[in-house]
Simulated assay, not measured.
Amino acid sequence: MNGFKKRTEKIKQRIKDATLELLTTMEPRAIRIADIVEQANVSQVTIYNHFGSKDNLIREALQDWYMEIVQETRQYLQDDTKSFQDKVAFTIFNKKAYLQKLSISKLEKLIWQDSEMKTFVEKIYQDHSLPLMMDLIEQGRKEGAIHYSFPSSLIIFYLNIFMEKAEDLTAYAQTYDNEEAFIEDMMQLFFYGIAGKR
């Protein structure tokens, strides 16, 4: 990549980062190009030249953000030194840092109101998330952490119950003295239910 392209990509990234930052406190429809201009310290012309419209910019910023999550998750879940339990804990709780940027409710609203984003997220799930989950389940079976009689679809459903509550779990974690104790208790609930490990 030559110097011009590097500068162009750097500017585009700054604009996308600024857009994500604004999305933490504002609704997408409330964000004006002028707000992005101020946050990113670029001109309106620069934004339109690179993205064409505010909607395209928001969409591209969110897609990059999603891919960042996917890459981080893939890297962790494909690490052969991590146990099934470690990977489950990561899968459930790794959203914490991302939730500091966008709440689950706001993210869902952004996705389901935009047909292109909905298609993108569904493709990410089919092409990336689902294969990773199937590999994780296979590891759990090999380690004896998943009962042989449970179908994979039920395990995914069970995992999704916890992952969909990531925002609530993050808020509830604040009631604990320390995060590690909270994660330990949640993992006990996940693997052994309310009876706990005997």
Rank of each mutant, 00 (worst) to 15 (best):
M1Q: 12
N2G: 08
N2P: 00
G3T: 15
I15K: 04
K16D: 06
E21W: 13
E21T: 13
M26G: 00
A30L: 07
A34R: 05
D35S: 06
D35F: 02
V37T: 04
V37S: 00
Q39C: 10
N41L: 07
V42L: 06
S43I: 01
I47C: 00
I47V: 00
G52T: 05
Q63M: 08
W65V: 06
M67Q: 00
E72N: 01
Y76T: 00
D79E: 05
D80I: 07
D80R: 04
S83Q: 03
F84P: 02
Q85S: 10
K87E: 02
K96W: 15
A97C: 13
A97N: 08
L99D: 05
Q100A: 11
L102D: 00
S103Q: 04
K109W: 15
I111H: 06
E122G: 09
K123L: 14
K123Q: 14
Y125K: 10
L130V: 01
M134G: 06
Q139Y: 02
K142A: 09
H147V: 15
H147S: 11
S149F: 15
Y158G: 03
L159W: 10
M163R: 11
E164Y: 15
A166H: 10
A166D: 09
D168G: 10
T170M: 15
Y172I: 01
Y172S: 12
Y176W: 12
D177I: 12
I183M: 07
M187C: 06
L189W: 09
F191W: 02
F191L: 04
G193A: 00
A195M: 13
G196A: 06
K197M: 11
K197H: 10
